[in-house]
Amino acid sequence: MIDHTRTDVSLRVNEAFHRLSVDNRRTLLDLLREDLGLTGPKKGCDHGQCGACTVLCDDRRVLSCLTLAVAADATAVTTVEGLAAEGELRPIQEAFVRLDGFQCGFCTPGQICSAVGMLAEHAAGWPSAVTAGDAPDRVPELDETEVRERMSGNLCRCGAYPSIVRAVLETAARQGGAA
């Protein structure tokens, strides 16, 4: 078989179906930003060290900067642009605005996608480093310590952490876990 350096990929992004040819080197982040014009996911470090590029891939939060676009073939991706209907805000987004869970806003799309994925993980009973020592049948209660540990993959240099934690906890309490 002849080796090609480009590959055709098909994926669903924010409910829209896309089929395109990509350079095998292209990351999912660059596919979203450069090919699809979805610039909500941000490139803060491009090496999996900041979390600004977080998107949901088949409903799990992942770092799009370390995901090759070719490897994301046949997946369903949700970016921050796809979390709510046009002109509306999802509860977590509304809480971020009202409680001022951001300042410059650059890490925010990643924080919000991460929070959505994290609350689903918690609802599924997944442990964190804070609670893994507990009995496996116990669903860990979501408190500040839990949220901080589970959100630690999203750096915020503006230091909006306390407001982010508040927004996540409030959303979890209001929505019974769904962000």
């Binding site: 999996g48 370390l66 991460s114 994925g117 442990p127 893994a132 993959g153």
Partner: peptide, 16 residues
């Protein structure tokens, strides 16, 4: 083992 895995990286990285 669970604790060690959860002590590494971040939720996003552990998911893949």
């Amino acid at each position: 083992l669970a604790l060690a895995v959860l002590s590494g990286a971040s939720g996003q990285l552990r998911n893949v």
